[in-house]
Protein backbone atom coordinates (compact mmCIF):
# COMPACT_ATOMS: atom_id res chain seq x y z
CA UNK A 1 0.00 0.00 0.00
CA UNK A 2 3.00 2.34 0.25
CA UNK A 3 2.74 3.20 -3.43
CA UNK A 4 -0.72 4.51 -2.80
CA UNK A 5 0.78 7.51 -1.04
CA UNK A 6 2.17 8.85 -4.27
CA UNK A 7 -1.31 8.86 -5.76
CA UNK A 8 -2.54 11.24 -3.20
CA UNK A 9 -1.55 14.60 -1.95
CA UNK A 10 2.04 14.16 -0.79
CA UNK A 11 2.52 15.15 2.81
CA UNK A 12 5.04 17.84 1.75
CA UNK A 13 2.31 20.13 0.37
CA UNK A 14 1.98 23.24 2.53
CA UNK A 15 -0.77 22.76 5.03
CA UNK A 16 -3.99 24.47 4.07
CA UNK A 17 -6.22 26.15 6.53
CA UNK A 18 -9.51 24.33 6.33
CA UNK A 19 -11.36 27.36 5.17
CA UNK A 20 -8.82 29.55 3.49
CA UNK A 21 -5.95 29.90 1.08
CA UNK A 22 -2.56 28.36 1.88
CA UNK A 23 -1.11 29.70 5.08
CA UNK A 24 2.09 31.40 4.04
CA UNK A 25 5.26 30.08 5.56
CA UNK A 26 8.16 32.14 6.83
CA UNK A 27 8.07 35.01 9.27
CA UNK A 28 4.49 35.97 10.13
CA UNK A 29 3.33 39.47 9.15
CA UNK A 30 2.33 41.90 11.90
CA UNK A 31 -0.21 40.10 14.00
CA UNK A 32 -3.24 42.42 13.83
CA UNK A 33 -3.17 42.82 10.06
CA UNK A 34 -2.89 39.10 9.66
CA UNK A 35 -5.91 38.44 11.87
CA UNK A 36 -8.07 40.95 10.05
CA UNK A 37 -7.21 39.55 6.66
CA UNK A 38 -7.80 36.06 7.89
CA UNK A 39 -11.13 37.00 9.35
CA UNK A 40 -12.13 38.66 6.09
CA UNK A 41 -11.14 35.60 4.11
CA UNK A 42 -12.92 33.34 6.51
CA UNK A 43 -16.08 35.43 6.24
CA UNK A 44 -15.92 35.19 2.46
CA UNK A 45 -15.45 31.44 2.54
CA UNK A 46 -18.27 30.99 4.97
CA UNK A 47 -20.55 33.28 2.97
CA UNK A 48 -19.87 31.25 -0.18
CA UNK A 49 -20.49 28.00 1.69
CA UNK A 50 -23.74 29.33 3.13
CA UNK A 51 -24.99 30.51 -0.28
CA UNK A 52 -24.17 27.12 -1.77
CA UNK A 53 -25.91 25.27 1.05
CA UNK A 54 -28.97 27.49 0.80
CA UNK A 55 -29.14 26.89 -2.94
CA UNK A 56 -29.70 23.20 -2.21
CA UNK A 57 -31.46 23.36 1.14
CA UNK A 58 -33.92 26.19 0.61
CA UNK A 59 -36.13 24.48 -2.00
CA UNK A 60 -36.14 21.33 0.15
CA UNK A 61 -37.12 23.40 3.16
CA UNK A 62 -39.92 25.13 1.25
CA UNK A 63 -41.28 21.79 0.09
CA UNK A 64 -41.18 20.59 3.68
CA UNK A 65 -43.00 23.70 4.94
CA UNK A 66 -45.69 23.38 2.28
CA UNK A 67 -46.12 19.71 3.07
CA UNK A 68 -46.65 20.26 6.81
CA UNK A 69 -48.73 23.44 6.67
CA UNK A 70 -52.02 22.81 8.48
CA UNK A 71 -55.24 23.06 6.51
CA UNK A 72 -56.24 26.40 8.03
CA UNK A 73 -53.12 28.20 6.73
CA UNK A 74 -52.99 26.41 3.41
CA UNK A 75 -54.00 29.33 1.26
CA UNK A 76 -52.66 32.29 3.24
CA UNK A 77 -50.75 34.63 1.02
CA UNK A 78 -47.92 35.45 1.23
CA UNK A 79 -46.82 32.08 2.58
CA UNK A 80 -45.27 31.90 6.03
CA UNK A 81 -41.60 30.95 6.17
CA UNK A 82 -42.11 29.10 9.45
CA UNK A 83 -45.27 26.98 9.66
CA UNK A 84 -47.62 28.05 12.45
CA UNK A 85 -47.98 24.41 13.47
CA UNK A 86 -46.73 21.07 12.21
CA UNK A 87 -49.45 19.04 10.59
CA UNK A 88 -48.77 15.70 9.00
CA UNK A 89 -52.28 15.25 7.60
CA UNK A 90 -51.20 15.84 3.98
CA UNK A 91 -48.32 13.41 4.21
CA UNK A 92 -50.38 10.79 5.98
CA UNK A 93 -53.23 11.20 3.47
CA UNK A 94 -50.74 10.63 0.70
CA UNK A 95 -49.17 7.61 2.40
CA UNK A 96 -52.57 6.08 3.14
CA UNK A 97 -53.73 6.51 -0.46
CA UNK A 98 -54.32 3.22 -2.18
CA UNK A 99 -51.13 1.63 -3.47
CA UNK A 100 -48.67 4.37 -2.48
CA UNK A 101 -46.74 2.31 0.07
CA UNK A 102 -46.58 -0.62 -2.37
CA UNK A 103 -45.35 1.73 -5.08
CA UNK A 104 -42.73 3.11 -2.68
CA UNK A 105 -41.26 -0.35 -1.98
CA UNK A 106 -41.48 -1.22 -5.65
CA UNK A 107 -39.40 1.86 -6.47
CA UNK A 108 -36.81 0.89 -3.83
CA UNK A 109 -36.57 -2.65 -5.22
CA UNK A 110 -36.30 -1.39 -8.80
CA UNK A 111 -33.52 0.95 -7.66
CA UNK A 112 -31.59 -1.85 -5.94
CA UNK A 113 -31.93 -4.25 -8.88
CA UNK A 114 -30.88 -1.47 -11.24
CA UNK A 115 -27.75 -0.71 -9.17
CA UNK A 116 -26.82 -4.40 -9.01
CA UNK A 117 -27.36 -4.97 -12.74
CA UNK A 118 -25.82 -1.69 -13.90
CA UNK A 119 -22.68 -2.16 -11.79
CA UNK A 120 -22.55 -5.89 -12.48
CA UNK A 121 -22.48 -5.28 -16.22
CA UNK A 122 -21.09 -1.76 -16.37
CA UNK A 123 -18.09 -2.10 -14.06
CA UNK A 124 -16.47 -5.01 -15.97
CA UNK A 125 -17.13 -3.15 -19.22
CA UNK A 126 -15.55 -0.01 -17.77
CA UNK A 127 -12.60 -2.08 -16.53
CA UNK A 128 -12.11 -3.58 -19.99
CA UNK A 129 -12.12 -0.18 -21.64
CA UNK A 130 -9.69 1.19 -19.09
CA UNK A 131 -7.24 -1.73 -19.00
CA UNK A 132 -7.20 -3.41 -22.36
CA UNK A 133 -6.42 -2.14 -25.80
CA UNK A 134 -8.55 -3.99 -28.30
CA UNK A 135 -9.63 -3.37 -31.84
CA UNK A 136 -12.57 -1.00 -32.05
CA UNK A 137 -12.19 0.29 -28.51
CA UNK A 138 -12.87 3.91 -29.48
CA UNK A 139 -15.83 2.94 -31.63
CA UNK A 140 -17.13 0.84 -28.74
CA UNK A 141 -16.93 3.84 -26.44
CA UNK A 142 -18.96 5.90 -28.89
CA UNK A 143 -21.51 3.16 -29.48
CA UNK A 144 -22.18 2.93 -25.74
CA UNK A 145 -23.17 6.59 -25.72
CA UNK A 146 -25.19 6.18 -28.90
CA UNK A 147 -27.75 4.13 -27.02
CA UNK A 148 -28.74 7.38 -25.36
CA UNK A 149 -29.17 9.09 -28.72
CA UNK A 150 -32.60 7.53 -29.19
CA UNK A 151 -35.16 9.36 -27.10
CA UNK A 152 -37.13 7.09 -24.78
CA UNK A 153 -40.29 8.73 -26.14
CA UNK A 154 -39.71 7.13 -29.53
CA UNK A 155 -38.69 3.77 -28.08
CA UNK A 156 -41.46 3.59 -25.53
CA UNK A 157 -44.31 2.10 -27.56
CA UNK A 158 -42.35 -0.61 -29.41
CA UNK A 159 -40.63 -1.41 -26.12
CA UNK A 160 -43.92 -1.70 -24.26
CA UNK A 161 -45.30 -3.95 -27.01
CA UNK A 162 -42.23 -6.19 -26.74
CA UNK A 163 -42.52 -6.27 -22.94
CA UNK A 164 -46.14 -7.39 -23.23
CA UNK A 165 -45.23 -10.11 -25.70
CA UNK A 166 -42.39 -11.38 -23.53
CA UNK A 167 -44.55 -11.10 -20.43
CA UNK A 168 -42.41 -8.80 -18.28
CA UNK A 169 -44.70 -5.78 -18.58
CA UNK A 170 -46.00 -4.32 -15.35
CA UNK A 171 -43.27 -6.00 -13.27
CA UNK A 172 -40.44 -4.66 -11.13
CA UNK A 173 -37.92 -6.65 -13.11
CA UNK A 174 -39.14 -5.13 -16.39
CA UNK A 175 -38.75 -1.57 -15.13
CA UNK A 176 -35.35 -2.40 -13.61
CA UNK A 177 -34.13 -3.76 -16.96
CA UNK A 178 -35.20 -0.54 -18.65
CA UNK A 179 -33.48 1.59 -16.02
CA UNK A 180 -30.35 -0.54 -16.30
CA UNK A 181 -30.27 0.15 -20.02
CA UNK A 182 -30.67 3.86 -19.41
CA UNK A 183 -27.98 3.89 -16.71
CA UNK A 184 -25.39 1.63 -18.36
CA UNK A 185 -23.70 4.18 -20.66
CA UNK A 186 -22.96 6.40 -17.68
CA UNK A 187 -21.96 3.51 -15.45
CA UNK A 188 -19.49 2.30 -18.06
CA UNK A 189 -18.01 5.75 -18.58
CA UNK A 190 -17.76 6.56 -14.87
CA UNK A 191 -16.22 3.21 -13.96
CA UNK A 192 -13.78 3.26 -16.87
CA UNK A 193 -12.46 6.66 -15.80
CA UNK A 194 -12.18 5.34 -12.24
CA UNK A 195 -10.13 2.34 -13.34
CA UNK A 196 -7.97 4.51 -15.59
CA UNK A 197 -6.98 6.53 -12.54
CA UNK A 198 -5.75 3.42 -10.70
CA UNK A 199 -2.22 2.65 -11.92
CA UNK A 200 -1.81 -0.72 -13.49
CA UNK A 201 1.52 -1.05 -11.66
CA UNK A 202 -0.34 -1.72 -8.45
CA UNK A 203 -2.03 -4.80 -9.84
CA UNK A 204 1.22 -5.95 -11.42
CA UNK A 205 3.03 -5.50 -8.14
CA UNK A 206 0.40 -7.60 -6.41
CA UNK A 207 0.83 -10.28 -9.05
CA UNK A 208 4.60 -10.40 -8.51
CA UNK A 209 3.79 -10.98 -4.86
CA UNK A 210 1.70 -14.02 -5.70
CA UNK A 211 -1.79 -12.76 -6.52
CA UNK A 212 -3.70 -14.14 -9.47
CA UNK A 213 -5.06 -11.44 -11.84
CA UNK A 214 -8.51 -11.92 -10.33
CA UNK A 215 -7.16 -11.62 -6.80
CA UNK A 216 -5.15 -8.57 -7.76
CA UNK A 217 -8.29 -6.97 -9.05
CA UNK A 218 -10.32 -7.93 -6.01
CA UNK A 219 -7.75 -6.96 -3.39
CA UNK A 220 -6.11 -3.94 -4.99
CA UNK A 221 -8.15 -2.28 -7.74
CA UNK A 222 -11.61 -2.89 -6.36
CA UNK A 223 -11.03 -1.28 -2.94
CA UNK A 224 -9.35 1.68 -4.62
CA UNK A 225 -12.21 1.95 -7.11
CA UNK A 226 -14.93 1.68 -4.50
CA UNK A 227 -15.53 5.43 -4.12
CA UNK A 228 -15.89 5.76 -7.88
CA UNK A 229 -18.20 2.76 -8.02
CA UNK A 230 -20.18 4.33 -5.20
CA UNK A 231 -20.55 7.49 -7.22
CA UNK A 232 -21.80 5.41 -10.14
CA UNK A 233 -24.24 3.67 -7.78
CA UNK A 234 -25.60 7.02 -6.54
CA UNK A 235 -26.05 8.14 -10.10
CA UNK A 236 -27.85 4.93 -11.02
CA UNK A 237 -30.09 5.12 -7.96
CA UNK A 238 -31.07 8.72 -8.68
CA UNK A 239 -31.78 7.93 -12.32
CA UNK A 240 -33.97 4.97 -11.41
CA UNK A 241 -35.71 6.76 -8.54
CA UNK A 242 -36.52 9.77 -10.73
CA UNK A 243 -37.57 8.02 -13.91
CA UNK A 244 -41.22 8.49 -14.61
CA UNK A 245 -41.48 8.15 -18.35
CA UNK A 246 -40.39 4.56 -18.82
CA UNK A 247 -42.13 3.49 -15.63
CA UNK A 248 -45.43 5.11 -16.67
CA UNK A 249 -45.66 3.27 -19.97
CA UNK A 250 -44.22 -0.06 -18.76
CA UNK A 251 -46.44 -0.45 -15.71
CA UNK A 252 -50.18 -0.40 -15.22
CA UNK A 253 -51.37 -1.98 -11.98
CA UNK A 254 -47.96 -2.17 -10.34
CA UNK A 255 -46.49 1.31 -10.85
CA UNK A 256 -43.33 2.67 -9.26
CA UNK A 257 -43.69 5.66 -6.99
CA UNK A 258 -43.07 8.37 -9.64
CA UNK A 259 -45.51 6.68 -12.03
CA UNK A 260 -48.05 6.40 -9.23
CA UNK A 261 -47.57 10.08 -8.37
CA UNK A 262 -47.75 11.19 -11.99
CA UNK A 263 -51.06 9.45 -12.54
CA UNK A 264 -52.81 10.79 -9.48
CA UNK A 265 -51.13 14.00 -8.45
CA UNK A 266 -50.57 16.12 -11.53
CA UNK A 267 -54.12 17.34 -11.11
CA UNK A 268 -54.31 17.20 -7.33
CA UNK A 269 -54.30 20.31 -5.12
CA UNK A 270 -50.86 21.76 -4.41
CA UNK A 271 -50.60 20.61 -0.79
CA UNK A 272 -50.85 16.98 -1.86
CA UNK A 273 -48.23 17.58 -4.50
CA UNK A 274 -45.89 19.01 -1.88
CA UNK A 275 -46.57 16.08 0.45
CA UNK A 276 -45.71 13.69 -2.38
CA UNK A 277 -42.60 15.68 -3.26
CA UNK A 278 -41.46 15.44 0.34
CA UNK A 279 -42.09 11.69 0.52
CA UNK A 280 -40.12 11.26 -2.72
CA UNK A 281 -37.24 13.42 -1.52
CA UNK A 282 -36.57 11.69 1.77
CA UNK A 283 -35.41 8.27 0.49
CA UNK A 284 -33.09 9.89 -2.05
CA UNK A 285 -31.53 12.01 0.67
CA UNK A 286 -31.19 8.97 2.95
CA UNK A 287 -29.53 6.92 0.21
CA UNK A 288 -27.15 9.75 -0.64
CA UNK A 289 -26.25 10.26 3.02
CA UNK A 290 -25.57 6.55 3.51
CA UNK A 291 -23.50 6.18 0.36
CA UNK A 292 -21.69 9.47 1.00
CA UNK A 293 -19.86 7.86 3.94
CA UNK A 294 -18.25 5.41 1.55
CA UNK A 295 -17.48 8.13 -0.94
CA UNK A 296 -15.48 10.21 1.54
CA UNK A 297 -14.49 7.61 4.12
CA UNK A 298 -12.78 5.30 1.69
CA UNK A 299 -10.68 8.01 0.13
CA UNK A 300 -9.66 8.95 3.63
CA UNK A 301 -8.66 5.42 4.48
CA UNK A 302 -6.56 5.04 1.33
CA UNK A 303 -4.71 8.27 2.01
CA UNK A 304 -3.96 7.20 5.54
Amino acid sequence: MTRAHTLETPPTTPARALDGPPVPEGPPPPRRKHTWRRLGNQALWYAAAIVLALFIALPIYLIFVSAVTPEADRYTYPKAIVPSALSFENISFFLRASGVVDAFWRSCIVGIITIVLALGIGAPAGYAIARYVFRGRDAYRLVILATRAFPVVILSIPLAVLYRQVGINDSVLGVALMHTTLALPFTVLITSSVFVSIPRDLEEAAQTLGCSPAQAFRRISLPLALPGLTAAAIFTWVLSWNDVFAAAILTLRNPTLPARILSSLTQAPLHFQFAAAFVMLVPSLVVIFIIRRYLLGLWGRVVK
Binding site: I109, I112, I113, V116, S171, V172, L173, A176
Partner: peptide
Amino acid sequence: MAVAIGASLTGG
Protein backbone atom coordinates in the same frame (compact mmCIF):
# COMPACT_ATOMS: atom_id res chain seq x y z
CA MET B 1 -30.10 -8.81 -3.94
CA ALA B 2 -31.92 -11.87 -2.72
CA VAL B 3 -34.67 -9.74 -1.21
CA ALA B 4 -34.94 -7.68 -4.39
CA ILE B 5 -35.15 -10.66 -6.68
CA GLY B 6 -37.57 -12.49 -4.40
CA ALA B 7 -39.76 -9.43 -4.23
CA SER B 8 -39.64 -8.94 -7.98
CA LEU B 9 -40.80 -12.49 -8.48
CA THR B 10 -43.71 -12.10 -6.08
CA GLY B 11 -44.52 -8.81 -7.80
CA GLY B 12 -44.73 -10.70 -11.06
